[in-house]
Design a protein around this nucleic acid. Sequence first.
DNA 1: GAGTGGTCTAGACCACCAA
DNA 2: TGGTGGTCTAGACCACTCC
Lengths: 237, 237
Amino acid sequence: MQSTPARAVTTICQALQEQIEHGLLVPGGKLPAERTLSEVFATTRITLREALVQLEAQGLIYREERRGWFVAPERLTYDLIERSHFHAMVLDQGRAPATELLSARLQPASAVICARLRLPALSSVVRICRLRRIDGRGVLYAEHYLNPRYFPGILELDLGQSLTETYARDYGIRYGQVGFEIVPTALPQAAANALRVSTGSPGLHITRVNSDQHGHLIDCDLEYWRHDAIRIRACAG
Amino acid sequence: MQSTPARAVTTICQALQEQIEHGLLVPGGKLPAERTLSEVFATTRITLREALVQLEAQGLIYREERRGWFVAPERLTYDLIERSHFHAMVLDQGRAPATELLSARLQPASAVICARLRLPALSSVVRICRLRRIDGRGVLYAEHYLNPRYFPGILELDLGQSLTETYARDYGIRYGQVGFEIVPTALPQAAANALRVSTGSPGLHITRVNSDQHGHLIDCDLEYWRHDAIRIRACAG
DNA sequence: GAGTGGTCTAGACCACCAA
DNA sequence: TGGTGGTCTAGACCACTCC
């Protein structure tokens, strides 16, 4: 059937996959060192790494820059329609969310952001960069861009919390229409660094453009997810 | 700023990226041979290939099994809300669609399909496998599973056409509610073969579960897209 | 049949993480 | 400081594509 006569890489993938599926390697657990594994499978590190990269692409294992390889936990389900925010979503699914504020400041908007928010050239926007974790593992790097007109003084608030809740509590703003754009691509430098992922590894880029209950474009956010950490759901019709 | 002192791989990526963005390499065009490129950049094939794989992950270039590397065309925009079908979508975006029927038959449903279509164990389903192309390039491998109860005699019809139109024309069935599930993962063997992609390369897996205008679950399809060929849009609220 | 990509070997050095 | 992962070298053979 299969013309390929059992590649070394394939054999290694299957062996590891079997061990993982049978629970001999637990989610979040660390794999043995690459050199050890390459001895176990009687091959070179290069070949072994190719197998690991393939399992990484499948989402079965993941890598932490310079720390090693780990068994991937279950994906988070992200429902496009039931607009929940990160903390609630993660809690609902029995996991522990955390948010780390990386930076927040007022700055000139890039051309891309001006277009998304329909702002004139050289407008200022509030830019908030955050890292989100599930059970301690960084899964999402997000850049929020807010139209400052709707959010006076927001830089003084606690931005480690849910923005959705801050909007409602401090500004009386709730989300109305939301536009999504989902693109599978490599993680850009900033996202890769924050997620401690090697540069150029596959990721999922989600752009959200948010309007409030009155139809004003209030903000947008650029989300970069580890590709193995997410499953998107939606219902239409 | 950047602690890394300009890796060889990074340098190569930037050089190629620049050439592509400035149109010296046109979409669909073939890159020079790997050995040629490795000489141009004064490095080994292994290192050069790593750079190519990274550009592939970014969606800038793609590979055709044993045929070489090519510059990736623009992505197709797939709108979850405006339920259009493949042919119409592709035409609307000024491209040329094509569909190739790979197989079609009645067979016992797998457990996964039974669950999706809420069928009892060991039910039979119609399974239709197709390859879809844009401007001649294979971008989507799709497996359709139809509840045969709603589609008597469908295996006798021309399945190279739009199923959506066949449903409407021959069975008076239109789509009602549709459920989506989107998961970034490696392409499985069958999809990789059909798309002439190397096994285990990254892809996007979309599962659709379709109801008709009366709310009956009529079919589902498992779609496997080249990760660089698609951009998903949706609007909610 | 020539050339290409797919696969694999057998090393090496460095930077960083953990102990 | 030892071990790990990140990166790179300099080859090799095979199967397939394309001429």
